[in-house]
Amino acid sequence: MFVASAFAASAQDAAEATHTETGVASEGAHKAGFPPFDSSTFPSQLLWLAITFGLFYLFLKRVVLPRIGGILEVRRDRIAQDLDQAARMKEEADQAVAAYEQELAEARKKANVIGQEARDAAKVEADAERRSVEKELEAKLGEAEKRIASIKDAAMRDVGTIAEDTAASIVQELVGGRLDKASAAAAVKAVKQ
């Protein structure tokens, strides 16, 4: 602004120096009225300024400013509303996530329980089966042992009979004469013991 006015001053000097008729004119204008200082135009300027500025003020106050204020208000409300909604939605989403996680944890726990139960049941069943199998095997074993013992007894008895017969035959062959059955049995018995 200072620069501008300095320019103006120097420019005016220059203009006055170069164009003498301009200098005369502006000097004359200073006396007859440099336009902005010509008081004969003041009433007209003041009247028309009052009319135009007054109407402008009323127009802005009644029509334009309420309208722009309304636009801004509506926008602010809308933004606040949208932010509220966004916050609410976020809360809902958070709740959903929390519920989901809880459900997941519960499901995992339940799965563990089920797994454990299944494992336990399987173990119990396996044990029972093994026990029954073992019992059966034992029973079979016992039976087999009994049979073996009876077979052995029978065999041993047979062995005794065979020995008696053989002894009797041998005595008969060697000595001649018959060996009665009871003494042969007693002899075999004595040898066996």
Binding site: T41, P43, S44, Q45, T52, F56, V64, I68
Partner: peptide, 27 residues
């Protein structure tokens, strides 16, 4: 008193009309 409608008055009207119309029409 001289209350003539001058070029200054015309530009006051133009100023007011331009500013008012701009604010009114753009909103």
């Amino acid at each position: 008193l001289d209350f003539s409608f001058t070029n200054a008055s015309a530009f006051m009207v133009a100023t007011v009309v331009a500013a008012g119309a701009f604010l009114f029409l753009t909103t």
